[in-house]
Simulated assay, not measured.
Amino acid sequence: MRVGRWLRAHPSDVVDYFVYVVVLNLAVEHLPRVLSEGFTLSLLTALLLKVALEVVLVVKARVVARFRAAQTPVGKVAAGLLVWVVAAGSKLVVLWLVDLVFGDRVSLGGFLSVTLLVVCLLLSRAGVRRLLDQPGTTTPGSRNGPPARA
């Protein structure tokens, strides 16, 4: 992965960010353990979550590739344990980062609430991406043009 990719926002990254803002603020409103002192802090928290979860997804993809490439039962078990460590550890890392950056001004609750939040973030992101990537729309590298207008 090139460093330049991280410095330029792709339209899907902007959409992801807005989805994260909405989901995070819904969590703040409806989950008593998820707190943010204000909208600006929730915007910054959503940005931190976007960056952290992108890194987690890259790490997870590499671990899953290692799992699939493992030839021996011991290698499969070791890679499977590593997948579990990344899945569980990423939630702890997110909690730690939020605490480090925002202190008491933002709280994502505990392990269960942050797990629920991350699952909702990723499902919402996937749903919005799927919605925006309907047949007949163009995406970079697609072979079909835009639909004809009458």
Rank of each mutant, 00 (worst) to 15 (best):
Val15Tyr: 06
Val15Asn: 08
Val15Ile: 14
Asp16Ser: 05
Asp16Glu: 14
Tyr17Phe: 14
Phe18Asn: 13
Phe18Leu: 14
Val19Glu: 06
Val19Phe: 01
Tyr20Ala: 04
Tyr20Ile: 05
Val21Arg: 09
Val22Trp: 04
Val22Gln: 09
Val22Ser: 11
Val23Ser: 04
Val23Asp: 02
Leu24Arg: 01
Leu24Tyr: 00
Asn25Trp: 00
Asn25Val: 00
Leu26Cys: 02
Leu26Tyr: 00
Leu26Asn: 02
Ala27Gly: 12
Ala27Trp: 00
Glu29Phe: 09
His30Ser: 10
His30Tyr: 11
Leu31Trp: 10
Leu31His: 13
Pro32Phe: 12
Pro32Arg: 15
Arg33Phe: 04
Arg33Met: 11
Arg33Glu: 12
Val34Tyr: 00
Val34Thr: 01
Val34Trp: 00
Leu35Arg: 15
Ser36Trp: 00
Glu37Tyr: 05
Glu37Ile: 07
Glu37Thr: 09
Glu37Leu: 14
Thr40Glu: 02
Thr40Phe: 01
Ser42Val: 04
Leu43Met: 13
Leu44Gln: 04
Leu47Gln: 07
Leu48Phe: 03
Leu48Met: 07
Leu49Asp: 02
Leu49Ser: 05
Leu49Arg: 06
Lys50Asn: 07
Lys50His: 11
Lys50Met: 06
Val51Arg: 10
Ala52Leu: 06
Glu54Tyr: 04
Glu54Leu: 11
Leu57Glu: 15
Leu57Arg: 15
Val58Ile: 08
Val58Phe: 05
Lys60Glu: 01
Lys60Thr: 06
Ala61Cys: 11
Ala61Tyr: 03
Arg62Ser: 10
Val64Trp: 03
Ala65Lys: 14
Ala65Glu: 14
Ala65Gly: 11
Arg66Asn: 06
Phe67Gly: 10
Arg68Tyr: 01
Arg68Lys: 15
Ala69Lys: 14
Ala70Ser: 15
Gln71Gly: 10
Thr72Ile: 07
Pro73Tyr: 03
Pro73Ala: 08
Val74Asn: 12
Gly75Tyr: 09
Lys76Met: 09
Lys76Asp: 02
Lys76Val: 04
Val77Ile: 15
Ala78Trp: 09
Ala79Arg: 14
Ala79Trp: 09
Ala79Glu: 09
Gly80Asn: 09
Gly80Ser: 12
Leu82Pro: 07
Leu82Lys: 13
Leu82Arg: 15
Val83Tyr: 08
Val83Cys: 15
Val83Asn: 14
